[in-house]
């Protein structure tokens, strides 16, 4: 009903193919933040159901996984997500890729649980009243209906993280990306979230410092200084990573690694 030419002409033909396998293809991808080279020379493709990402702090894990959701764009090389070039796919990516941030406090936009869940639906174009109803149904389906009216700020850390995960899942993404989702959780909450994640039909890419969560994964990427140090099955990569930590901590106190 606009009688003025629309400012942006959205391409109505979606360019992503949600069923594309591999879902991510990196070719010589590099990324700088400011003058700092954070990632470089990444060439790999992801098709597995469960991919773990490990590495020391500052190795580039967060930056790497943020590219999967279009939160960061590579500045050299080529990145294809769901068969489309990352830059062109960016506006459409949140539909296919759910992103769970490390700190739940950085993810929640709305004050109450029900609103936070409903937001994802209104983003997809569902009307407000309908989105509320569906948010409640969705919470019930996940046995969380009791949380619906509560302010997110008053939940336990485990509940907060669960709400963050649900608020993304309600949009029915193909791929779920999680950046250290267990960091603020106690052992029990961490186990529960881990079980929840295992039960999901979505493909998952997860950064984790707790290596035990990655044992059952299909593939683990070990990042170091913005590149891939090792890439393989968990039974190869995890022991090698542990051995490296042991070796380094035994040798000397490396300031850079703190």
């Amino acid at each position: 009903m606009a009688f003025w030419p629309k400012k942006k002409n959205h391409d109505r033909n979606r360019i992503c193919d949600p069923a594309a396998i591999p879902y991510a293809e990196f070719h010589g991808v590099g990324l700088s933040i400011g003058s700092r080279k954070v990632l470089s020379g990444l060439t790999l493709s992801l098709k597995e159901d469960r991919v773990g990402v490990i590495g020391l702090n500052g190795s580039g894990k967060s930056t790497f996984v943020r590219m999967l959701n279009g939160l960061r764009q590579p500045d050299c090389g080529s990145l294809k997500l769901f068969g489309a070039l990352a830059e062109a796919a960016a506006p459409e990516l949140p539909r296919h890729v759910g992103f769970v941030f490390q700190n739940p406090d950085h993810q929640a936009i709305f004050p109450t649980v029900e609103e936070e869940i409903a937001f994802g639906l209104t983003q997809l174009g569902v009307a407000r009243d309908e989105s509320r109803k569906r948010a409640l149904d969705f919470l019930t389906q996940h046995n969380c209906e009791a949380l619906a009216p509560l302010p997110i700020a008053e939940l336990s850390e485990g509940q907060k993280q669960l709400v963050c995960i649900l608020s993304v899942l309600v949009m029915e993404p193909r791929l779920l990306v999680l950046d250290e989702p267990m960091t603020s959780l106690d052992a029990l909450a961490s186990r529960r979230i881990g079980d929840k994640l295992r039960s999901l039909p979505q493909k998952i890419v997860m950064v984790s410092h707790d290596l035990s969560h990655l044992e059952g994964f299909d593939r683990v990427l070990w990042l170091e200084d913005g590149g891939i140090r090792m890439d393989g099955a968990p039974f190869e990569v995890l022991p090698a990573f542990r051995a490296d930590i042991d070796r380094r901590s035994g040798v000397k106190l490396e300031l850079a690694a703190l």
Binding site: R12, G70, L71, P91, E92, P94, Q107, I109, Q123, L124
Partner: peptide, 15 residues
Amino acid sequence: DALRARGGSEGLSDR
């Protein structure tokens, strides 16, 4: 970022 990760301020409906 949180907003952008879920489709930004204009939503995903008309894309």
